[in-house]
Amino acid sequence: MTTLSPQEIGAIYEKANALMVAGKSEDARAYLMEQLPQLPEDLRNKIVVELLNEAVQEELHELQTIDDIQEEGMAAAELLEELKKKKEKEATT
């Protein structure tokens, strides 16, 4: 892998920044992911941490939602149990 000069890295930053400032965040992300392997290791590590941060946050919210859904599932099971008891009571009376 070739080593990029600071000027070339500056150019990568400028292009990504330009995309970001223009509101094309998805393009900026794609461009950065494409260029990531070429960046120096220390810079790359820092960027990976930022990506990790983003992913963790997403995961957290997904986990919370799953928790909520499971909670409703448990509530449903409880209510169905009540329904069963009610039906059994009806059957006996």
Partner: peptide
């Protein structure tokens, strides 16, 4: 990320 670039 931009900050990381500038610092580097």
């Amino acid at each position: 990320i931009a900050r990381r670039f500038i610092e580097w």
